[in-house]
């Protein structure tokens, strides 16, 4: 365990020094109270207090579109498997999104391994940023136990007014500190301030839904035939916003694209969604999750039930993005509340 201190005045030096060497992405404002991770050259556009970005940092780990294979049909169909990747520093990742990255790591490192993901992931340095208070009313990070840092970062920043306390978690994190030379030692008084903030935080963050973390899995287990899914069936418009913005959704489609010379081509994958009508359709025409309610249920079960059996972990991080973005105002916390009420 090692802590460093960064005076707020020096944040700009930290970011701009890093940005001279490699790509740095951080949360910036997009207006309308929305934020997104974008490339920055210094700290001027970085917004430290932000609600979860429109898209989670997933977009750097699993790009919306990525080439898997390149081929040339003129040379006897020669082909090469490729991975698109780039060294970068990802700054300002909230604890909910750190949990999301861990979910993706687990899914893609399960055999058969996905080297496209695994190679890219290790090119990215992660700098976390603590939430001292709730971002907004959609979050359920306390219910999902993701409101305190649980690892998964190289450096972790906690904003304590005039300075950040920085947890140096890895060698790579230490290298960022050594390289930029803007950090100081954290002494006991700083650590006390951090402890005090964390203590205060414990009073702020409460289970957002009246259910114990451990009871979520059994709740979903017995909700297979719940009327709540019929209710969602009436409301969901199958726009797939919820899965696109989800930090742990990773379903994809694979497509070939030939250039106009009809020789060079690529095979790429791009984000897909179990909410799309054709997602589970087979060539014979049968669709195995025809109703929107079934597809919504599938989404919830992929967060709260199936990964528990497989990975002993919830794939919901509590970031609240699905609820924030839903055009039909389907709200994750309300869905869980409805299930609780129904089973009570």
């Amino acid at each position: 365990m090692q802590y460093a201190l960064l005076k707020k005045d020096h944040l700009n030096d930290f970011i701009s020094k890093l940005a001279q060497e490699q790509k740095v992405v951080a949360p910036v404002s997009r207006g309308f109270g929305q934020f997104s991770f974008e490339e920055v050259a210094d700290a001027s556009r970085i917004i430290l207090k932000h609600i979860p970005t429109i898209l989670p940092p997933k977009k750097y780990f699993m790009p919306q579109e990525e080439t898997l294979l390149e081929y040339n049909l003129s040379e006897g169909q020669s082909m090469e498997a490729v991975v698109e990747c780039q060294k970068m520093v990802l700054f300002g990742v909230h604890t909910c999104d750190l949990a999301g990255i861990q979910c993706l790591n687990i899914a893609f490192s399960e055999r058969p391994k996905d080297f496209n993901y695994l190679i890219r992931k290790n090119k990215i340095a992660i700098v976390g940023l603590e939430c001292n208070d709730y971002c907004d009313e959609y979050a359920s990070c306390s219910l999902m136990d993701n409101h305190f840092p649980n690892g998964g970062y190289d450096l972790f920043f906690t904003d304590l007014g005039d300075f950040f306390i920085v947890h140096v978690n890895t060698q790579l994190g230490d290298e960022l500190i050594e390289k930029t030379k803007v950090f100081e030692r954290a002494d006991k008084s700083h650590m006390d301030t951090l402890a005090k903030m964390r203590e205060k935080k414990r009073g702020i963050f409460k289970n957002e839904v009246d259910i114990d973390h451990q009871e979520l899995e059994p709740l979903f287990k017995k909700s297979q035939n719940s009327k709540v899914w019929d209710e969602l069936n009436k409301r969901c418009v199958a726009c797939a916003n919820c899965t696109n913005v989800c930090p742990s959704c990773y379903c994809f489609d694979v497509t070939d694209e030939l250039q106009l010379d009809l020789k060079h081509g690529k095979r790429y994958r791009r984000w897909d969604s179990c909410q799309n009508e054709g997602f589970a359709k087979v060539s014979g025409g049968e669709s195995f999750r025809e109703k929107r309610g079934e597809r919504q249920k599938h989404r919830y079960y992929r967060k709260f039930l199936y990964p528990m059996a497989k990975f002993a972990r919830f794939f919901c991080t509590g970031c609240g993005r699905c609820s924030r973005t839903c055009m039909a105002k389907i709200n994750l916390k309300e869905t869980i509340r409805s299930l609780i009420t129904e089973k009570a």
């Binding site: 893609f108 058969p112 996905d114 990773y250 379903c251 694979v254």
Partner: peptide
């Protein structure tokens, strides 16, 4: 029969419950 797109248990198309 399901749409087994990636064959690697990742892409999600062929999933039957868990």
């Amino acid at each position: 029969e399901r749409h087994m797109k990636c064959g690697l248990g990742k892409c999600g198309h062929c999933q039957i419950e868990n």
